[in-house]
Amino acid sequence: MNAFEYASPQTVQEAVELLGPGWQDSAVLAGGTDLLSLMKDGIVSPRRLVNIKRIRGLDRIELIGDVVRIGATVTLEQLLRDATIAARFPSLTQAAAGVTSPQIRNMGTVAGDLCQRPRCWYFRAGFGILATGPDGEPLVPAGDNRYHAIFPEGQAYYVHPSSLAPALIALEATVEIHGPQGTRELPVEELYRIPGSNNERELNLGPREIITAITIPANGVKNATYEVRQRQLLDWPLATASVALRLSGRKVVSARVVLGHVGPRPRRATGAEAVLNGAELNEQRIEAAARAAVQGARPLSRNGYKVQLAQVAVKRALASLA
């Protein structure tokens, strides 16, 4: 880990002022579970870390009217234990529980979960976010892509590792972002982007911006997350599905289905949603929705199995609500 400056501001405003204009200038430190590893591996070497854990008020979960507001530095463990979340958003509780290490849950924050970098082993070995070889050629399609995207986008073959993002997207959550020019809000769905080069990031977030909170409308949708993981030990999911259904009896008024770990950003399965919208939630519909969810998948040489896993995840997530 290269040497760096460190600051621990008490307000969001101070924190924003402490951040520099380029990614190499500074980084926001929350749980540190990913950032410190990236720095040890020399994948990022920011000259300054700005710790946001001492900023008051960012570590709370609040129900304000019909909106649940989750502070950026709320830990995964806090999220997992929160009764408001468990009652309204079991899909979030389930996703947090999927991070099976208590240590990671105690350290890792919800904003950190959204902003963590992909685990692609080419990226982590220094080949860049797009995993390109010495001549700029993409390494993933001809390489070992067993954990990579079945819905690659552009030149991006990694999968986004966030545990919470698929559930948050299904729940129509929004991130609150502070930057030099004030505050803005962004649907979690729009937080992710496809980098055009190895110098770009995979988030629609500037180097001087900080996620301060996540807000979720508490509008009574039934929701669930199902993760396919090989180990009970802390392990990355192979595919996940988060679903949120507005039901009228057994009839689906509207559905949101989001796949995780299948592409460089959490993937809205609009095909599956279309199958469910207006239909009765039964076994046949669930099967059809699961099939539709993976339609158009373009698996790579070694990850065809993930198409089935994603399908199973959708099926099981929906079945848990039926």
Binding site: I177, G179, P180, G182, T183, R184, G206, P207, R208, E209
Partner: peptide, 13 residues
């Protein structure tokens, strides 16, 4: 990315 935020997303703080 360059501007940090887009006009559309901007909310007055």
């Amino acid at each position: 990315l360059r501007s940090g935020i887009s006009r559309r997303d901007f909310l007055r703080g």
